[in-house]
Design a protein around this nucleic acid. Structure first.
Lengths: 190, 190
DNA sequence: CCAGCCATCTTTGCGCCGTCAACTTCTTTC
DNA sequence: GAAAGAAGTTGACGGCGCAAAGATGGCTGG
């Protein structure tokens, strides 16, 4: 019955979980390190040892976010057929999925000034995400310029969907929504 | 020799200017109302009377931002020819121009949770921006679905360019850069 | 087995921040 | 020309990020 052991045991993971919850509720702007600590049931200075400061925590969260971001794309790809173009389109749907499901994390990753862009783990995770996309485009017969085109289209759709600016699609039933998005994504295909 | 008159005279405008400078330097995350007041040379509580709170100030700034955003697009359109499709493509370049020239304002407008989305002036300014885009797409022979496609492409390019993720284009000389962007935007044309 | 080391967490303190309330100064209006 | 109200200031409050120093307890070498 260790009610409140002095040592948490797995505080790092608990803080990351609390941080994402905090991020989802308060957004990057309202993010508070002390609030995260309260969520995890520890003192307000406890995060320091694991992450240094707010930037450190958010950077670690962003690195994890990139992995989940790629996973969302992969999940869609695996549900698609074997045709490379279809898989790339599915990947685009996964891109949008992630943005809509975890908007605060999406924003943190792509537009926050509160993360350390030079962090090794973050750079690595971000590069992996880019390589995943570039690989998909290449498999679909795309060349260098096609990467930017498909990326921009998928990213634009994701960002607008996430911020509720394409309500016309958001209100559709899932399969129709996906079909509408694919019809647009297809324009950016190689 | 009114060294420091008690009444500023045009504090509202001065605060808006200081706020954009603050935004550009500190970003939405690091934005500080007190710092804005210091920039304008007034007491820390002076903004209250004009904008209420931080959200009020940022919301007013965002509304102005939307107008500048449309202006950036219009400037490009007027430099383009008379052909509707070319004008729409030029508008897309203006979209990207604005994002790159005033990234913090772009972020404030599109992805900040720190503005009052229900503000009348903001909604009006945002609607005007949307209608401008929709009008351009319609003039180019586009239908309902084409709006989302072109918007997403322009927005995605703008967001990625702004955050330095398309360095391949950013490093190009202006005309080549524009040509590369137009080549991509063209895919989203009706 | 136990002594000490070290990672982990808490407490305390500092300055900055946003917001509010009360006050002062100026302008406008009747 | 005085009252009324608009425009700024001052002071206070709690919350925040961060740093330093203390408390706790797991772990390792003897």
């Amino acid at each position: 019955m260790t009610e409140k052991p002095y040592h948490h045991g797995n505080l790092r993971a608990a803080l990351l979980g609390a941080a994402e919850a905090e991020l989802a509720e308060a957004g990057v702007e309202g993010f508070s390190l002390r609030s995260v600590a309260r969520r995890a049931g520890v003192s307000h200075a406890a995060p320091k040892h694991h992450f240094g400061d707010t930037t450190g925590l958010l950077t670690a969260l962003a690195a994890e976010g990139f992995q989940a971001f790629v996973a969302a794309q992969t999940a869609r790809e695996e549900a698609a057929g074997a045709h490379p173009s279809e898989r790339l389109l599915a990947s685009g749907l996964g891109y949008v999925d992630f943005a809509c499901a975890r908007p605060a994390l999406f924003r943190l990753i792509f537009t926050s000034r509160r993360i350390d862009e030079s962090s090794d783990t973050l750079v690595e995770a971000g590069s992996a995400a880019y390589l995943h996309l570039a690989g998909g485009v290449a498999a679909a017969g795309g060349r260098e310029g096609d990467i930017a085109a498909f990326w921009a289209m998928a990213h634009g759709l994701a960002d607008l969907m996430m911020s509720g600016r394409l309500a016309q699609f958001a209100d559709l039933p899932p399969d129709e929504r996906d079909a509408a998005l694919v019809a647009i994504l297809r324009r950016a295909l190689p």
